[in-house]
Design a protein around this nucleic acid. Structure first.
Lengths: 195, 195
DNA sequence: AACCTATGTGGGCAGTGTCAACATCTGCTC
DNA sequence: GAGCAGATGTTGACACTGCCCACATAGGTT
């Protein structure tokens, strides 16, 4: 009955179906067979494109890390001094989490980080290195303690990650994205007040 | 073959088995039947003590929130000025996450927060109110901006939560608890440097 | 002693991830 | 063009899961 026996680009279709399913039921209740059903293929078709359920999730995570890295890079290139650009990138991190909560959840919750495909691991490193560069620029500008660049970078990461994580798990009291973003701006400013 | 047909306190045994299983395979791969097996009872015995798999996880989360609240309360009662006590409580948050990573993961990852039992939800509120009190004390001491107490409290929460979350998911570069705690002290100091 | 309720058992069902065998399509070689 | 090879999709199967049912047993109450 299918016009084309070959789906022609099942991989993308499966990824999209997976993301929407995760959005509905979460990454735990997420099911390979349901993804196949939504893509209109047999329950085993996904195995031609992903080695396992975990592997599909890892692909979602990869995609998320790449988009996150891009969003931070873009935000970090806006005009302003180094500190402003670091703040922009931090806001972009939170904004990404709010815009793609399914991705964000899979990226940081689902599997043990070592289980991520090397592809996802590389994408994650890439995203973090964006933040790293911006922190180094801030330090070069004379802000921050001049030592411990690694700790400063990780501090920046933990700050935005905490906001994003609590926001996406629905534990912050604001119900609108803009409310949360306003709080994020407040928190990020506060976190850099000593710089 | 059992000396006692009745296990006499299966509920605690099941909770302990569940926690250790979660520690081994994570809350996703965690299985009710395996818990029953480890407790030496039939696959259906857990249903006499927990309504569902979710309900068991919620019980683990409750237990975690209660212990977390206690640890923060204890840390917040140490000597020192209000700011020191807030820092101590923050460190206690991170220390709890490192000491009971299984609990911490279940508390914040596993289900949608609304799915937690009302018991767990109450325990979570209790834990957060510990932090809240300490922040108010800091403000009363003249630190912080005097407005926005809610934002300040949530900021404190997001700060320690980000550290704890990245630490428990193995994304911080330190391999020892003391290394992570040293970083946590640095980050918490930094986050309050503007106060 | 008889019963009632809490607790534990065994069997069953639909649904899952994954494997193996088979079918069909597409592109390349002659 | 004919035919083959590999990639892609399908069907069937297996062990396992969460949860439901009916039944068995224990301990305490009357």
């Amino acid at each position: 009955m299918p016009a084309t026996y070959h789906h022609e680009n099942l991989r993308e279709t499966l990824l999209a179906a997976a993301i929407s399913l995760i959005g509905e039921v979460g990454p735990t209740a997420f099911t390979l067979r349901e993804v196949a059903r939504r893509a209109g293929v047999s329950h085993n078709a996904p195995y031609r494109h992903f080695r396992s359920r975990e592997d599909l999730l890892a692909a979602v995570a990869s995609q998320g890390f790449r988009e996150l890295a891009g969003a931070m890079r873009a935000a970090g290139q806006k005009q302003g001094d180094a500190l402003d650009r670091l703040k922009s990138a931090g806001l972009a991190y939170v904004a990404f989490a709010l815009r793609k909560p399914e991705h964000f959840t899979v990226m940081f919750d689902a599997p043990r980080s070592e289980d991520l495909s090397s592809d996802a691991a590389e994408a994650a490193k890439e995203a973090f290195s964006e933040l790293n560069l911006l922190v180094l620029a801030v330090q070069a500008n004379g802000h921050f303690a001049q030592n411990e660049p690694q700790q400063q970078s990780l501090y920046a990461w933990t700050t935005v990650h905490g906001i994003a994580k609590l926001a996406t798990s629905g534990r912050l009291p604001w119900r609108t994205k803009s409310g949360i973003m306003r709080f994020a701006a407040f928190a990020i400013d506060q976190s850099l007040a000593g710089a």
